[in-house]
Structures are given as structure tokens and as C-alpha cells.
């Protein structure tokens, strides 16, 4: 985490003084982007850097669903299953992905390539069903399209 401190310093410049606590969430996001998850040593580093109570960081990590403390597969396949997506075939799509990847939501394939997750509404209901592959939205998905999407990945 230490190597990110220059970036954190830049980020801090646009916050008012006394907003150190606010940096917890953006720093954790940045750490996760960097490492793929937030390690215990990152928590220690962040606590020392920001001077916030450790328990605050632990609470935040457990509260926000995007943050994680364990590594996952190289490709994170997150499929929306809220109302609008389900109305346009998300449930069938999830079944398809389960079979295709051979894992249940929340699990990672044995080769460490894919982690399958279900998520609630991604704010893209007009182009349902939606699959989020790592950071990017893929909209109007179908079994065929998802096959094509995942087919080309390492």
C-alpha cells in the first residue's frame, strides 16, 4: 500500500482540511484496484496513514459489497438479478453461467480464471440483462453473447 501514498496525497488535495476519515473509502478502492483485494497489511498501512481507528476500516470493508478481503478470480462475472434484469432473462442467464463455468455464484473456477457473482440492480435496467465483467458493463446480454464475451478471455 505504501507505494500508493503519493497518489493518496494528490487525492487529499481536493478535500477540505480535516477530511482524513473521508479518504478511507477511496483509498480502499484504490488498494483493491491495485492488489485485487484488501490485505491485512493494507489495513495496517491505511490506519497508520490516515490515523483513523482500525475498526472503522474493518466495518467499511464488511459493509460495502464491492470491497473484499480475499482474492478472487482474474475475471469477475457479476450478473444482475434484480427485477428488471430478471424480467428480461437474467435468471436464465445465471443458470447458463453456472453450467458453463461449473461454479455457483460466490465461487471461483478451479483454474482461478472466473469468479461468478450475482448482484442487485446495477442501474442499467433499460439494457437488461446486464453482466459486469470486472469494471465494465455488458448490456442486453444473452447466453450467446456471454459465451462470446467470456470465450476470448485468458
Amino acid at each position: 500500500m505504501r507505494h500508493l501514498i503519493p497518489e493518496f496525497e494528490k487525492m487529499k488535495a481536493r478535500y477540505p482540511a480535516g477530511f482524513e476519515s473521508s479518504l478511507v473509502l477511496p483509498c480502499l478502492r484504490r488498494i483493491q484496484d491495485d492488489r485485487g483485494f484488501v490485505a491485512d497489511s493494507d489495513i495496517d498501512g491505511l490506519v497508520a496513514y490516515l490515523g483513523v481507528p482500525r475498526v472503522q476500516v474493518e466495518e467499511v470493508l464488511s459493509f460495502y459489497t464491492q470491497l473484499r478481503r480475499k482474492p478472487i478470480g482474474r475475471w469477475h462475472v457479476q450478473t444482475c438479478r434484480n427485477v428488471s434484469c430478471s424480467m428480461r432473462g437474467a435468471e436464465r442467464l445465471i443458470d447458463h453461467l453456472r453450467k458453463k463455468l461449473g461454479v455457483a455464484p460466490g465461487e471461483t473456477t478451479a483454474d482461478g480464471r472466473f469468479t461468478l457473482s450475482t448482484v442487485e440492480c446495477l442501474g442499467s435496467c433499460g439494457t437488461a440483462p446486464v453482466v459486469m465483467l470486472n469494471d465494465a458493463y455488458h448490456e442486453n446480454m444473452s447466453a450467446e453473447k456471454v459465451d462470446a464475451l467470456l470465450g476470448g478471455l485468458e
Binding site: D40, P53, E58, S62, F63
Partner: peptide
Amino acid sequence: TREISKSHALGIENRADHSLVRPAEDRR
């Protein structure tokens, strides 16, 4: 622990009815 003893030693993890009181992991 936040307002009186100031140890900041306890928190609440997770959400909804999975919420759990938990101690800071450094066992302070």
C-alpha cells in the same frame, strides 16, 4: 468504546440481520 473509553475497540460488521458486534482485529 468510541465516546467513553476511547479505545475504538468494537464495531458492527456486515448488515441487515447478519450484523454482528465484533472487536477490532488487533484485539485492542
